[in-house]
Structures are given as C-alpha cells and as structure tokens.
Design a protein around this nucleic acid. Structure first.
Length: 333
DNA sequence: ATGTGAG
DNA sequence: ACTCACATA
C-alpha cells in the first residue's frame, strides 16, 4: 500500500470523521503536535463507533474524547458545511509541500519539515538535492511515480511464479506465500508482501547465522535472476526493496519476511489482513481467553499471564482454537 | 542510545 | 500496537 490513507464510509458520522482525520494528519505532519494529533484521533474513533447521527456540538460533547473545541468545530461544520481552519490549511503552501514530500517512501513528517525549512517544497525541487537524502529516500524518489501505481493482480501472479521458480531451485522445502490484498483476491495491490519459511528453521532453534544468510541468499538469488532491482533495507528477518518483471513493467515495492516455521500461520493471518479483520479477530481472541499476535496464539490464564503458544499447523487451526467461523482470505474485508 | 520511518 | 532496519550520535 502507498502512503495514502483510506477511511470507512458506512457510519452516520462519516463526514465529521473525515474532517477530523484531516485535522489529525495536519497536526501530525505539519505542526508536529502529537497531543493535538492524538486528540483528533480519539475523537474520530469515538465518532466512528457511535451508532447514530450527531446533530449538534452539544450532543457530541457528551462523548468521551470530545470537548469544547471539537464540539464547536462540529457546530461550524453543521451550520456552514465547512471549516475555516481547514480552508486555511488547504490554502497553506507549507502544508501542501509537506504533504507532497511525505509521499516519497522514507520521508516522514520530520524529514519533510526540515526539507521545507531549507526551501525544498516539491518533488521536482527535491530531485536537485539528492545529497540531502538517505539511500532509502533516494530510491523512493527515483521510483516515485512507479511506487504510486497500483499493481494488477496478473502481474503479481507472474512475479510470484518467478519467485517460486528461483527459490524452489535453491531449496525445494521453502514455503512461499504472498499475502496482503493480493491474497484476499483483490484485482490490484499497492505492494507485494512475501512471507517465507523453512521446516528446519524454527524459533527455538536459534541459528542466527544460518538465518541471517538465508534471507541474504534469497535476496541475492532474486537479484541474480533480475527480479529484484533495489534494496531499501535488509536485515536478518526482513527485506524491503523493489522488483521489476521486465522492461515493459514498472518498478514495484517488494517486501520479504523470513518467518520461523512455528510462527508461519499466525504471520500469514496477520499479513493477509485486512486491518479491520485483524482487529476483529484479536478482540474475539481476547473474549475466548486467548491472545493473538503476528507470532502466536496463546491462552491467557486467570492471572492475565499468557501461556505457551498453541501449536498451529494451518490458518484454519487458529480459527478452530478460538471457535471463530473460518473465513477464506477473500472474505476478510 | 535515540529518533525516524515503514508496515 | 508493535517490531524491524536505518542513520546519527
């Protein structure tokens, strides 16, 4: 996924959430005021889960997380259909510059701020000052246009078959799964999130060196065959970079994670998403007396202390343990 | 060590 | 929310 955010659209206070989210982003990215940012976020979350339409600031004030200031904004929005503060933000060039610069992967609010302070206010201008950037940011800038393009499903299928072919030749026992929206059956995706494991790599057998080389070797193999073209970062468990199918195709964001065998299915579940589905799944786990994270499903005792991870041999196992009706990846919206 | 950023 | 990788100090 790119750096754009999506928002839900089915709740009765959607329009309030929309402008409050925009104010939150503004406080995070431009003023760098983390407290105001959190305040807006809290207000959005309470409004988003409020079942009925709010019809006045006073009514909103009764909700936890909404005080005088936000209540006034809701009144203004109700009466005039807009917000003066937001109008001002929209016409502010510093804000526009920061929003533009943070679209480059590797550039967050802090870096964008310092660039704007030095007078660099656009992608075009930034291209003349690559000396101010890290490797990650340079690669992000070089492929700026490509990285914002969606990836059609059939292109990921082709990339998947190249990865499978190359890595199975290396070691036939490697298990490879592309997760994210691709696994959920979407027609297009923002990036390619690949999970890899191997039966004799488990979390109790800590072959740090073996593990370290394993991911490096995988990346090297994919570079040799011409698929992987850029590295943003490469550690012992996570590669972030880019790949390109051939000259006719854009450069695509590719992540590869190396996962211990015993954690593979929790990871697949987690990285398949969606985010909303994950939240749903976790709260259900808690209700059933489990704690679920990207590594393991563990029973939580009466003391509140999580026990030993439950043995998992498939994604279905996870659903079964917490009697949650199994949902196919395509149904996890 | 700490801060930044990605996901 | 939490973890990983990186850059800088």
């Amino acid at each position: 996924m790119g750096k754009r955010k999506a928002s839900d659209d089915t709740n009765p206070n959607h329009d309030f959430c929309e402008f409050l989210s925009e104010l939150a982003e503004y406080e995070k990215n431009v003023t760098r005021d983390i407290h105001r940012y959190s305040a807006y976020r809290k207000a959005v979350s309470v409004l988003a889960s409020h079942p009925t339409r709010i019809t006045s600031g006073d009514e909103a004030r009764k909700l936890k997380g909404i005080g005088e200031k936000i209540a006034k904004k809701i009144d203004e929005f109700l009466q005039t259909g807009k917000l003066r503060k937001l109008e001002a933000i929209h016409s502010d060039s510093t804000n526009a510059a920061i929003n533009e610069l943070t679209r480059v992967t590797g550039i967050g609010p802090a870096k964008a701020h310092s660039l704007v302070k030095e007078g660099i206010t656009s992608i075009e201008e930034l291209r003349k000052h690559t000396d101010k950037l890290t490797h990650h940011q340079i690669v992000g800038l070089r492929h700026f246009e490509d990285f914002e393009k969606k990836i059609p499903r059939q292109e990921i299928e082709q990339i998947e078959s190249v990865i499978n072919k190359e890595l199975k030749a290396m070691d036939h026992d490697l298990k490879i799964t592309i997760c994210g929206s691709y696994r959920r059956g979407k027609a297009e995706s923002g990036d390619i999130d690949t999970l890899i494991t191997h039966p004799n790599f488990t979390s109790d057998k800590v072959d740090k060196k073996h593990k370290n080389n394993m991911l490096k070797n995988i990346v090297t193999a994919l570079e040799k065959c011409g698929l992987v073209t850029e590295t943003l970062s490469l550690g012992e468990s996570k590669f972030m970079g880019a790949c390109k199918l051939d000259l006719e195709h854009p450069t695509r964001r590719l992540d590869i994670r190396l996962i211990p065998y015993d954690q593979y299915y929790c990871c697949i579940l987690y990285f398949t998403g969606s985010d909303m589905f994950n939240k749903e799944m976790r709260t259900h786990a808690l209700e059933k007396g489990f704690t679920l994270n990207e590594y393991a499903l563990r029973p939580v005792g009466v003391t509140g202390v999580p026990g030993e991870p439950v043995e998992i041999h498939s994604e279905e196992d996870i659903f079964d343990y917490m009697d949650f009706p199994y949902k196919k990846p395509e149904e996890r919206g």
